[in-house]
Structures are given as structure tokens and as C-alpha cells.
Amino acid sequence: MIPLSWYLIFAAALFSIGLFAVLARRNAIVILMGIELMLNAVNINLVAFWRYVNPELIAGQVFAVMVFAVAAAEVAVALAIFISIYRRRRSVSADEIDLMKW
């Protein structure tokens, strides 16, 4: 059988890759993809803990469903913002969208 640590290490790797995308990429859409990868890593953890520690309590799966809902809402709003920004600035590069940085 697969020990719990395998899932946890896999999730940690996925989370770190997502974090690197968020920190280092310039394009805002790729940053959003990084956030999605991080959310997926968190979900893997939630479901793995549900399965390994306490399968009678369904909480792990419920939390994962909530993360799905939040991710869907977040992507919808974020992409709307990007399209709106693109209309005005002709760019979705995160380091060019700095008007409020002063």
C-alpha cells in the first residue's frame, strides 16, 4: 500500500511548483494557473487525510468541494479582470499593471 507520506510529498511538490509560477512568471494568466496548481495540491492533502486518518468523517471531501467552488469563482472573476485590463492596456503582464503601486 501507499503510505500517506507519498501523497503529502507529491502535494508539497505540486504546491511549490505553483508557488514558483506565482512568484516568477510575468503573465497574469500563468500566475492564475499557478494558483490553481496550489489549490489542487491542497485538495490532494485534504482528500488524503480524509482517506488515511478518518474515513467516517466526510469533512475532507466536503472541504475539497468547497475549494472547487471557490476556485471556480476565483477564476471567473480573475479572468474577467484580465480581459478588462487587456482592453485598456493591451497587456496582461503582471509587472506592467502597477498603477496603484505608488
Partner: peptide, 15 residues
């Protein structure tokens, strides 16, 4: 993860 003792648990049998 590696230093946590609970990380090596195997899954509980599902009902």
C-alpha cells in the same frame, strides 16, 4: 512530513 510519525500510516479499511 518525514519527521512526522503519522506519515507512514496506511489507509483505514473503508466501510
Amino acid at each position: 512530513t518525514l519527521s512526522w510519525s503519522g506519515a507512514t500510516t496506511t489507509p483505514m479499511p473503508l466501510d
